[in-house]
Lab assay of single mutants.
Amino acid sequence: MASQGTKRSYEQMETDGERQNATEIRASVGKMIDGIGRFYIQMCTELKLSDYEGRLIQNSLTIERMVLSAFDERRNKYLEEHPSAGKDPKKTGGPIYKRVDRKWMRELVLYDKEEIRRIWRQANNGDDATAGLTHMMIWHSNLNDTTYQRTRALVRTGMDPRMCSLMQGSTLPRRSGAAGAAVKGVGTMVMELIRMIKRGINDRNFWRGENGRKTRSAYERMCNILKGKFQTAAQRAMMDQVRESRNPGNAEIEDLIFLARSALILRGSVAHKSCLPACVYGPAVASGYDFEKEGYSLVGIDPFKLLQNSQVYSLIRPNENPAHKSQLVWMACNSAAFEDLRVLSFIRGTKVSPRGKLSTRGVQIASNENMDAMESSTLELRSRYWAIRTRSGGNTNQQRASAGQISVQPAFSVQRNLPFDKPTIMAAFTGNTEGRTSDMRAEIIRMMEGAKPEEMSFQGRGVFELSDERAANPIVPSFDMSNEGSYFFGDNAEEYDN
């Protein structure tokens, strides 16, 4: 993207840094990872977990959730003011799984939030270390993106479920800051804005008074975040219109849905970061690795190297396929839920299948599930090659597409044709070009129609051997075009429920 120079890199967003050079960025990201790792080690000690239990991804998720809940100030305040039966607002906890007599047992633990905050700050040299908290939120978000298709949420806001490739980060909490905003897809931002506008339509006082002023500035800020994701002048001009509207209503909703559809071809720039579970960072720190000293990046080879040398386990339900569970977590670790499966298959070195073909449910185990038949197995999170994460949407291309997802959002900077089903997408653009945004709409449609099938995206960008740390010898991959490109292809993934 041309304006790259004016933006802070995501590592800076990730670490609240002012302008830093590459070495400083690597050190501050490393410091953040160190903090998460030290916190995780301490929690495993508190909970008396064995090494194996500490490497269980379900335990990692519970521990991450506990610290996120302990620092969720708004919710904590709300819980104190609106006490609900049987919930102690000062405590947080969740299921911890232990191996007892050759069987997995679930144990519900409860801790004072104050105590968890103390352990977290102690692991982070006394700081609140917001960057580390956001990092864990993005890992949870990436896992949700890989596990669930947001059909219901899309339909509720009037969008087409086939636009799911635009929904990265749709389950990120509001408090995820600049680093969170960077990884949100165009569809996620559109959905947040539509929800806001709908509230304004239904509630006369939404934009009024002292609160209304705050609401208005939040609305304009979200519009600017979305505008910054678009790469064409016409899309940005249309966002200006939406932002400046005196009284946002149905016309703005129409414009936003139009823009979301246009992003299936004229893709937005959305950041991709490899955020790993805390149970990967903990053992690495415990083994003596100093992330701050060595430096770390979320968008280069580092996460690949770390996963190459990590042992992570997962509980497996009786009829689940461990290899499929591994694929789910591998995609989440690489922030690749909406990437082209052919690119992923090449990088991973084994075939990556669409969601609907995987015999696996989510990673988390519900409290009512029976533990008797639970097994555990090693997650295979290694890769054959590594590639640089991208934040450009890439230019655009036609490809055989599917009944489910009709476009992709690249996660890796790797040369390819970008699949999208042009006739299906263009069919949504018939007729409606009147109104105050008509010239911009016409211009956007013209650009979409001009998108050429034979153009290559990320020209000359390749993948790298894991021994090639400096990215000196790019390998331009070859793809098996007979395979499906979309992950949520004609899909039956479970729906995400809060």
Rank of each mutant, 00 (worst) to 15 (best):
R150G: 07
I33T: 13
P83N: 13
T171K: 04
S165R: 00
D421G: 00
A427E: 00
S402R: 15
N142Y: 08
S141G: 12
I388M: 00
L133S: 02
K48N: 11
N498P: 00
W330M: 09
G54K: 02
D112V: 09
Q122W: 00
G282R: 06
D88H: 03
E80D: 12
W120K: 10
P477T: 08
E53M: 10
L315E: 05
A271S: 13
G126Y: 01
I257L: 15
Q311G: 07
I57F: 03
I406H: 13
E115W: 02
N370F: 10
R236L: 02
V476H: 00
P95M: 07
G460A: 15
A233R: 01
P89Q: 01
M137H: 06
R121C: 14
G126S: 12
E252S: 04
G362T: 08
L379R: 02
I301K: 10
G126R: 13
D372V: 03
G17L: 00
Y281W: 13
Q409F: 00
T45W: 03
Q58P: 11
A178Q: 10
R99H: 09
I119G: 10
L298N: 05
A387M: 01
E294W: 01
S314Q: 10
S482D: 15
K7A: 00
N432E: 00
A70K: 05
C44T: 10
P173L: 06
K293W: 01
M448C: 01
D497S: 14
V329N: 06
I475G: 07
G300I: 08
R213V: 09
G249D: 10
D290E: 14
P410L: 01
N59V: 11
S383R: 01
A70M: 02
N319Y: 00
D127V: 14
N498R: 15
M105F: 14
R8M: 04
V155K: 07
P173D: 06
V67P: 04
M66E: 07
D145K: 11
P89S: 14
T130N: 08
T424E: 12
F338A: 12
K184W: 10
S297P: 08
R342C: 10
A178G: 08
L68R: 05
R267H: 05
S245Q: 07
F464D: 04
F39L: 06
G209W: 06
E24A: 07
P474Q: 02
G158F: 05
L56G: 11
E434S: 15
S407F: 02
P95C: 13
G30P: 04
V29S: 12
P318I: 10
Q308P: 00
Q241I: 12
R65Q: 09
K91L: 01
S457W: 03
A182H: 13
R382H: 05
L47A: 00
R55E: 05
E494T: 09
G356C: 06
F291S: 14
Q405I: 00
G126H: 04
Y97M: 01
V280E: 05
Q308K: 00
S359C: 11
Q12F: 08
S274E: 02
T215Y: 02
E339K: 14
T360W: 03
E443L: 02
E210N: 10
A131G: 08
E380W: 14
V414H: 00
H140D: 11
M13A: 06
E455H: 12
R216E: 06
V312W: 13
A271H: 03
L379T: 08
M1A: 08
I119M: 13
Q4E: 11
R384P: 12
E294T: 11
P248L: 08
Q42R: 05
G17D: 00
R195G: 01
D290F: 07
R208W: 05
A2G: 01
G17P: 15
G435N: 08
I194L: 13
I96E: 08
R236G: 07
I96S: 10
N142G: 10
G288D: 07
S310K: 00
F230P: 02
S326Y: 12
R416V: 02
R261E: 10
T92A: 12
S50C: 07
A332D: 10
S402I: 01
K7T: 00
D51C: 08
C223V: 13
V280Q: 00
M239G: 08
L68G: 10
G37N: 08
W386N: 05
M481K: 12
Y10C: 03
C44D: 01
G349A: 04
G356W: 12
R342V: 03
F479P: 09
Y496S: 09
N368L: 09
G180T: 06
V280K: 10
F420K: 00
S9Q: 09
M43A: 13
N395F: 08
Y148T: 11
D160V: 10
Y296E: 02
A153P: 08
S69C: 13
N321P: 02
A218L: 12
G394W: 12
M191Y: 06
K7W: 05
D421T: 13
P453H: 11
E115Y: 07
Y289C: 11
Q12H: 15
S28V: 01
D480K: 14
V270L: 12
P477D: 01
K31D: 00
N395V: 03
N397W: 13
V29C: 08
A337V: 14
R156Q: 13
T433F: 09
C164F: 00
D372S: 08
D302H: 14
A251N: 08
P419Y: 00
A233G: 07
D72F: 10
D421Q: 12
A27W: 01
P173A: 14
V29N: 01
L315D: 07
R19H: 11
I57S: 05
L328G: 04
D468I: 01
M222F: 13
D88V: 03
L110Q: 05
L68M: 10
T15F: 11
R199C: 07
T62G: 13
S217I: 14
C44I: 15
I253Q: 14
L381R: 01
S287Y: 08
S367G: 12
S314L: 02
G356T: 07
V29Q: 04
I265F: 00
G394R: 10
M239I: 14
E73G: 06
E210W: 07
K98Q: 14
N368I: 13
N368R: 08
G485A: 03
E80H: 08
K227N: 12
L133N: 02
M137V: 09
I347Q: 04
I257W: 09
L110Y: 05
N124K: 05
A85G: 13
N224Q: 14
F338Y: 04
S478I: 03
L298D: 11
N224F: 10
K325S: 00
A182Y: 12
N125P: 03
P161N: 01
N370M: 09
E114Q: 13
A411W: 03
V67R: 05
Q409G: 06
R400P: 11
L298C: 10
M448Q: 15
K90R: 14
F429C: 14
S269I: 10
K90V: 11
V312A: 08
L306I: 13
P453M: 08
E244V: 14
N76A: 09
G228V: 09
E14G: 02
N370C: 10
A284G: 00
Y78V: 11
N319K: 15
E375N: 14
D302E: 02
Q12M: 05
P423R: 15
M32R: 03
I265W: 00
T188Y: 06
S413C: 08
L306K: 05
E380G: 02
A451E: 07
S9T: 04
G185N: 07
S335L: 10
L61I: 12
Q399I: 04
D290G: 09
V343W: 01
P89F: 13
T360I: 04
L108V: 11
G393E: 09
P283R: 07
H272L: 05
N334K: 02
N309V: 02
P248V: 08
K103C: 07
E24K: 09
C44A: 13
N395I: 02
G54I: 04
L79N: 09
Q415G: 11
F338V: 09
L466E: 00
S376H: 08
R162E: 11
E375V: 08
S438E: 00
S141C: 11
S269M: 09
D128K: 02
F346K: 06
L108Q: 14
N321K: 15
F420D: 01
L341W: 11
Q42E: 11
G490L: 11
V408W: 02
S297H: 06
M189N: 02
M481E: 08
L307T: 12
R446S: 13
G249V: 08
R195Q: 07
S60L: 11
D101V: 10
F71I: 01
E339Q: 09
G249Y: 03
G35C: 11
G356K: 12
S457C: 00
G187R: 07
Q327E: 10
S438Q: 02
T92V: 03
